[in-house]
Design a protein around this nucleic acid. Structure first.
Length: 307
DNA sequence: CGCATTTGACCCGCGC
DNA sequence: GCGCGGGTCAAATGCG
């Protein structure tokens, strides 16, 4: 983990149940400044082309979106310093949730399985091609922290669970899912945060090379549009930028409909971005959240509210 | 019956 | 080299 550059997003998914209004709430958000909308106070950076990107889009195989996302994340060959060990210890949940974003230069984004070929026979598995041993290379990963009572969040794609492991120092297991679409090697891991059991950490790895399943696409697409029109108005307003702007700020949202909740019951969600620089979060009793970056540049302090 | 989930075994990388 | 932990496989099982 130490060599990995962490890419972590936090979004607060408010589980509300049927009939509940899916509008985001701001528990201890101070009264909005009088006069002018919140949006006016903190307009999203107009120059950022990533604001209108849904998570579904991000996960989708669209090369444009993927590269845009990669660009936004500065997925290049110059990884930033990782969290120091003390930071990791202080922020165990974030560290546990941290997703590696590595540019391994292998260009194997769509490779369904770059794992070494295994024997298909029963019993003991035999290691293949001794001399061809290659270091296993990972695809870029993105993690999202989601406040939710359900662990497997609907994101528009179909997943098949292929494993579950106990997580060290955590009573909560980690589940492994793979996209069921043929030749799509996207995987995701889902685990519940030990520090904050109400938070589900979802880590996506890889890039979908297909469209959303048609059975889901309609609802999801419509929901995405509806949700985004809502969040895009509100979300920037709760990000207080006292010093500088986010270089690569954009908003993501998970795709689920407030009017037609997914079978799993969750309603909607918002993803807060960060850029490549390593960072960690402080979360204290619904107080404004502070983002601290530890990159080369000083991006100041960023606060946000949990919705 | 087909598909998804469960679960124990296995593989692999890494740190000591 | 060894042990540990993360990740994956695949047979067994469950479910609609």
């Amino acid at each position: 983990m130490a060599e990995e550059d962490h890419q972590l997003y936090f979004h607060h998914h408010r589980y509300t149940g049927a009939g509940d209004d899916a509008a985001p709430v701001f528990p201890n958000y101070p009264s909005p400044p009088a006069g002018g909308s919140l949006v006016d106070k903190a307009p999203p950076p107009a120059s950022t082309p990533y604001n209108n990107m849904s998570l579904t889009d991000c996960l989708h195989g669209s090369a444009d979106h993927y590269h845009s996302l990669a660009k936004a994340f500065a997925l290049d060959a110059n990884p930033s310093p990782s969290l120091s060990s003390s930071e990791v210890e202080d922020h165990q949940a974030a560290a546990a949730a941290a997703a590696a974003v590595e540019d391994d230069g292998s260009n194997n984004i769509n490779c369904p399985d770059n794992k070494k070929e295994k024997s298909t026979g029963k019993g003991k598995k035999v290691q293949a091609g001794k001399g061809e041993k290659k270091k296993r290379q990972r695809e870029p990963r993105f993690a999202f922290m989601t406040k939710s009572e359900v662990e497997h969040l609907e994101d528009g794609y179909r997943w098949r669970k292929y494993g579950q492991k106990a997580v060290k120092n955590s009573p909560y297991p980690r589940s492994y899912y793979r996209c069921t679409t043929q030749r799509c090697g996207v995987k995701k891991r889902v685990e519940r945060s030990f520090d904050n059991p109400s938070v589900v950490v979802t880590t996506y790895e890889g890039q979908h090379n297909h469209h959303l399943p048609s059975t889901l696409r309609g609802n999801v697409a419509a929901a995405s549009a509806a949700m985004f029109s809502h969040y895009s108005m509100l979300a920037p307003s709760v990000i207080h930028r006292p010093t500088t702007s986010f270089p690569a700020e954009f908003l993501l949202q998970l795709s689920s409909s407030p009017s037609s909740p997914s079978p799993s019951g969750h309603v909607g969600s918002l993803v807060y971005p960060r850029q490549q620089e390593s960072f960690f979060r402080h979360q204290r009793n619904n107080q404004p959240q502070r983002l601290q970056f530890s990159g080369d540049e000083d991006y100041g302090e960023h606060f946000y509210y949990v919705i």
